[in-house]
Amino acid sequence: MSERTVRAPAKINLHLGVGAPREDGFHPLVTVYQAVGLHDDVTVREADDWSVEVAVADWMAGVELPPVEDNIVTRAADLLAAHHGVPRRGAVHVAKAIPVAGGMAGGSADAAAALVALDRLWGTGTTDEDLLALAAELGSDVPFALVGGTALGTGRGELVERVPDAGTWWWVAVPAHAGLSTPAVYRHFDVMVPDASAQPPVPDTLLAALAAGDVDALAAALHNDLQAPALDLRPELGALIARGEEAGALRGLLSGSGPTCLFLCRDGDHAREVAAALDAGDPGDHPHPTVLVANGAVSGAHLVEYA
C-alpha cells in the first residue's frame, strides 16, 4: 500500500506589525516568520474513501479538535482534488506535537503537510507556484509552512519571501491549556490602537540582526503588535513572560495572537537552563506545566524518508 509522511514545522513571529483593518475586514500585516523544531507529521495512505485521524502528544491530552469535515486537512484535500479534477480519497493520520490553538500555526502546518503528502500520493505533480496559491486559500500562515526557514510575510501574511538568516536560534516555548481567540485579540487591538497605520513598516533592524546572526540585537528587536491586547485579555501571560525573563531569557514574547509564550535564549544549553527554571516548583504554582525547547530556523513541509 502506498504511503507518504510529510513533516511540517511550527512557526513563530519574530516581528508582527499590524495595520488598520482593510475594507475586506483583514488587517494588513508585516511579519517575520521563523520555522522552529516543533513538528506535526501527516501520513497519508491509499483508501477507497476519506478519513482523518488525529493523535496528540501526551501533554495535549484533552484538547478539543474539529470534526473531520471541518478539519483543515480535509479542506486542503478538497482544494487539491478540485484543482486537478481527481476524487478525494485517502486515509490520513496526523501526529500533533505543535501546540493546538497556541499561536504557532499547527493547523497551517497540517494543511501544508497534507498538500504535499496528497500531491505525492495522488501523483498530481502540482507546481510549487500552484501549491503556494492553494495554501494561501487555506489560510495566511499556510504558505509559510510550505516555505519554512525565516521569511518576511506581507499582505495578510500569505505573501512570503525568504530573508537572509545567519543564526541558529534557540527558543523556549510555554503553551497554555486555555486557548485565546485570534479574532478577539484582533478586535481588542482595534479598540486599543484606533489610529493604526494603513501599512505597517518593514522591520529593518530585526532583519539586519538576523542577517548578522546577532542574538543580542535580535532580542532587542523582537516585536509583536498583538502582544499588548492579548496580555490585556489574559494578564497571567504577562506574568509568565516576566517570569521567563527573570529566569535568564534574553527576551520574552507572545507567539502570534497567543497564548503560547516564547523566550529567546543564547544557545541550546541556555535554553535548557531557562526551561528547567520555568518547569521547576509545584505545578500548582502556575498554570503552564508544559515547557518545550526548540531551535530555528528549520525546513518547511518536507517528505520524511525512513531507511
Rank of each mutant, 00 (worst) to 15 (best):
L292Y: 03
L210G: 03
W59Y: 13
A239S: 09
L240E: 11
L233D: 05
V304R: 15
L253F: 13
T31R: 07
D269T: 07
R120Y: 11
E53Q: 13
L210A: 03
D214P: 12
G107D: 06
A173T: 06
L29E: 01
E305H: 14
T290V: 10
L231Q: 07
S255Y: 04
T124H: 04
D204Q: 09
A196N: 07
G103E: 12
F263S: 04
A133W: 02
L180C: 00
I98V: 12
A221T: 04
L240I: 06
P28S: 12
T5P: 15
R120Q: 07
E64N: 14
L118W: 15
A20K: 10
F26Y: 13
G106W: 13
A55R: 14
E53A: 12
D195R: 14
V68W: 05
P183M: 01
P259G: 06
L65I: 10
R7M: 11
A55V: 10
A276N: 09
I98H: 05
A135G: 13
G252Q: 01
E129M: 02
V6Y: 15
E246F: 03
V94M: 08
D269P: 10
M1F: 06
H188N: 07
V215P: 13
L115E: 02
D195A: 12
R120F: 09
V202W: 01
T168G: 12
A307I: 06
V298A: 11
A47G: 13
V52F: 08
D41S: 15
R88E: 15
L159S: 08
I98W: 08
T260F: 01
A145L: 13
A271H: 01
A209D: 00
L226K: 07
A117I: 02
T124Q: 07
A184L: 09
E236V: 00
H15C: 04
D78H: 15
G107K: 14
P235T: 01
L207T: 02
G85W: 15
G248A: 06
D204R: 03
L250R: 02
P67K: 09
A277E: 14
G167N: 08
A109F: 15
W170V: 01
R7T: 08
I12C: 10
P21K: 00
